[in-house]
């Protein structure tokens, strides 16, 4: 099966530009990163802050210019300088979900305006002729578990979980085959996290590919098929998710797993917390 999205030898550095500086200092954020994701599969990318996971997604969608390496969508190389026509397929086919649900929808526009604009940008085959009608917008909301009463409200009127659903609805307007998620659940509380992850699972069952960036191995253990571990801009370990978590090859990966409270230490941490609380309520010094 051919990859929905694959990245080969992607290298990118943040230049530190300042007027009068003789030499530009390049901070290497991605160092020859190669990975690929198949339709209907979830590729998890994990690593500590600053490991380059978010930079990777931002580079793929074209927010970072001046990288080297190749990005292929459905086997065809993507040229971010290609202009509207050249990029139309890629822009419709690859959508991004952001971490901060409160900031991912334009606060000055109603949900109707935001979704209608997203539909209007979708290729003709998906949006159909004419203006997007009420039922098209309603169908998008229905798809993410919201209803049409949301249409004439603004983002400030929704909770974090609802906003993330609406952001997903916007992403779905162009019927993407690849969805890039940058910590999409880390700003949400646990019960809402689970609902959003369920929604992702449904979308994946439709054959969409996901690249899922998070520092939360617990979340990835649930949904990822494959795992990529990044450290300082490099891919240091890849493999099927279960295998990487059960028997990591790299010491760094083991440390990452050991540091994840959701997997091994959750019970221990809970007990510690309980003990602390009991001793505090008992009036004894901690």
């Amino acid at each position: 099966m051919s990859a929905a999205l694959d990245v080969e030898q992607l290298t990118f550095g943040y230049p530190s530009a300042s007027l009068g500086a003789r030499r530009q200092v390049i901070v290497k954020a991605l160092d020859h990163v190669s990975l690929s994701v198949q339709p209907g599969r979830v590729l998890g990318i994990v690593g500590e802050s600053g490991s380059g996971k978010s930079t990777l997604l931002r580079t793929i969608v074209g927010l970072n210019r001046g990288f080297s390496g190749t990005i292929r969508f459905n086997g065809r190389p993507v040229d971010h300088g290609a202009g509207k026509a050249g990029l139309a397929d890629f822009r419709a086919g690859v959508q991004m979900i952001f971490q901060d649900p409160g900031g991912s929808l334009n606060p000055f526009k109603t949900i109707r305006q935001t979704l209608a604009a997203a539909l209007a940008r979708a290729p003709l085959g998906i949006r159909g002729e004419g203006k997007p009608g009420e039922n098209k917008l309603g169908a998008l909301l229905d798809r993410v578990g919201m209803n049409a009463s949301a249409l004439d409200r603004r983002p400030s009127e929704f909770s974090g979980g609802q906003l993330q659903r609406l952001a997903i609805a916007r992403a779905l307007a162009s019927n993407p085959s690849v969805i890039l998620c940058d910590e999409p659940t880390s700003a949400l509380d646990v019960s809402v996290q689970a609902q959003i992850l369920d929604l992702f699972a449904e979308l994946r069952a439709e054959g969409r590919a996901f690249i899922f960036v998070t520092h939360n191995l617990g979340v990835l253990g649930h949904i990822a098929d494959d795992l990529v571990v990044m450290y300082r801009g490099k891919v240091i370990e890849t493999g099927p998710a279960r295998q990487v978590i059960a028997s990591p090859r790299e010491a760094y990966t083991s440390a990452l797993i050991a540091a994840s409270p959701r997997l091994k230490h959750r019970g221990a941490l809970l007990n510690q917390a309980r003990e602390r609380r009991e001793s505090a309520s008992g009036g004894k010094p901690a």
Binding site: M96, F98, S104, L105, N106, R121
Partner: peptide, 21 residues
């Protein structure tokens, strides 16, 4: 802000991003 990045990613022109976002 993510909504501005979302607009840029979706290929909105500079003027449109400035005007809307």
């Amino acid at each position: 802000r993510s909504y501005v990045e979302a607009a840029i990613i979706s290929g909105d022109s500079a003027w449109r991003v400035v005007r809307d976002c």
